[in-house]
Design a protein around this nucleic acid. Structure first.
Lengths: 338, 338
DNA sequence: CTGAAAGCGCTAACAT
DNA sequence: ATGTTAGCGCTTTCAG
């Protein structure tokens, strides 16, 4: 920030007023051609660039958008960021990222920090803790202040704002239907605890698919995991049942299940077919490559940024929920249809 | 930003001057207790928060740090961000992220955008293109303006600034030595093209390890890949040679090699031992789990942020290069020592 | 054609 | 104890 030349300095150097310099740089016809050229040449020489902060203060627009996510070391969130950044950049916005690291308090603090003028709007995916507590006062507050907010993936239904989600239920439904199609009779579910919105919805899809195909639900084959760190121990008991299909709500659960299956002497996909959720690197490079419900993170990010910028630039009060289509990507962890 | 209350409004409401309000909120003893309490109560009621932008303009400090990386959908970079964010947050800084998507031009544009007052300093990892062209004018320019800059991982040796790197050469040396230790005689290398600094260094480590153990170098077993997208085709020829060990400079190369090996009927680790670089999710969940040289991304990020903030807050001219230790994490893709 | 002045929100030195 | 003023860098209206 030091060393950068300002209008004031240029004006002093050239012995004209600040406003003349400002106008000259904008090529205003108010200013004589001669002065314009002189000023522009000088500015170019010294590589003048207007100070963003001053512009922000003046325009009451920062051209920054704030993104708050639970984690970044997670392919899905990273790809969403990627999409946000891409779209934002195109429209001349910068992206400020804060990690809530799954902590409600950090989420609140981060929002608070950014809400005080640093950004023009928020994109957020809630922490598990926030979803569990259902305490959305910080979101509501920001909205009340008139700051646009769009939520994605882990959302709060009850908050009135733009949202970008996938059809978690349908994605799960499709996956489980595929398992049934290829002949699985005893399908296990590895999901998260219910207060995580996406976990709950995927569980619903699972149940509905079974019901629609008249397959009885085996409660013992439904595992709900709170803590991904210890998922191995939680998943292990699944193999006490003679299952021939597994639907897991994320990659880690799916891969952990595959490894456990192998340890139990089961072949994939011959003995057990496995489908995961979220199309990340892990699925692609797993062996066998994991069949998975793809959640287009890039697109989710782009769409969220698009909606946010639209709201920033033309405020309006009608909030939409955009549903991004999922797609089942069939790879090698599921038997082929016979 | 709208809806937020300002000092001016408070002062009007309470019929005192703006500076009185400002001082009262700072609990200045200059102001009568009575007024202080009145102002503070009012401010609290209306949830007053000073406007960050105005503060930035005044203080010539944004409390933002800019991070420019080639990609975010990459566990290593994501973990570095995580580290940066953690350290920055602790010190009251926000993190603005720009993706150069491996494009020199985007790198320059992004730096330009941020350099105009939006941030107090940069953390950057160069694009391959930048390293290839060796065009560092944008970096030098920013430094000349007096803006602190720290580079990590993909750095430019010739630029005088703080740097955080790992000892790529030693990491590679250690990995290859391990392969030799467990009895590998014909070790293949899968690296990047030489202009990528880390690829070159890891290649050097590979060569040195062979030399120190008096193992002749087989040029045909050295593969240098430009484009990760098509690495499979590039790696395939490796299996025309009867290799019993592979050192790959990243996870994707390593996993791709493992898959190809299997397709050639080779067992891992019985027939071929494989070691990768970068300890990401892929390595951990691969099967067999990949032995790898761990590059502590989190620590790199923390260290980079620490150095940057130090420079921001106490400018000085002595630049350091911090070397973060690598660690060989032995998993299942290498034979155990006999 | 050029410049003075006000204002974005805040702080702080300097009156009163 | 409180207020006035100037200034951070810029834009823009209004005067000259």
């Amino acid at each position: 920030m030091k060393g950068k030349i300002t209008l004031k300095q240029i004006s002093k150097e050239l012995d004209v007023s600040i406003s003349t310099v400002s106008k000259a740089l904008k090529n205003s016809s108010e200013i004589s051609l001669e002065t314009r050229e002189k000023v522009q040449a000088f500015a170019k020489l010294y590589n003048y660039r207007p100070n963003n902060i001053a512009l922000s203060l003046k325009n009451r627009k920062t051209k920054n958008i704030g993104v708050i996510i639970p984690e970044i070391v997670h392919h899905f969130f990273a790809s969403v960021i990627s999409g946000i950044e891409q779209e934002a950049n195109e429209k001349g916005y910068n992206v400020i990222i804060c990690l809530s690291t799954e902590s409600f308090d950090k989420e609140v603090i981060n929002m608070d920090m950014l809400a005080n003028g640093s950004i023009d709007g928020f994109i957020i995916s809630l922490t598990k803790e926030t979803q569990m507590r259902k305490d959305y006062h910080h979101l509501q507050e920001v909205i009340n202040q008139g700051m646009p907010l769009v939520m994605f993936d882990r959302i709060a239904e009850s908050i009135n704002c733009d949202k970008v989600v996938i059809d978690d239920k349908k994605g799960a439904y499709d996956a489980v239907s595929e398992l049934i199609d290829i002949g699985c009779k005893n399908i296990g579910l590895i999901s998260t605890v219910d207060y995580v919105s996406v976990g709950r919805l995927r569980t619903e899809g699972f149940l509905e698919a079974l019901k629609d195909h008249n397959i009885p639900v085996n409660q013992d084959a439904i595992i709900k995991i709170e803590d991904i760190e210890h998922c191995r121990e939680n998943i292990a008991p699944l193999f006490n049942h003679k299952i021939d299909g597994i639907f897991a709500v994320n990659e880690i659960f799916a891969l952990t299940a595959m490894n456990l299956a192998r340890e139990h002497g089961l072949r994939i996909p011959e003995d057990v077919s496995v489908i995961g959720f979220t199309d990340g690197e892990l699925s692609k490079y797993a062996s066998p490559a994991l069949t998975t419900v793809s959640q287009n993170g890039l697109l989710i990010g782009q769409e969220a940024a698009r909606m946010l910028i639209e709201k920033i630039e033309n405020e309006s009060e009608d909030y939409k929920t955009k549903i991004i289509k999922t797609k089942l990507i069939v790879r090698k962890s599921t038997k082929s249809k016979s």
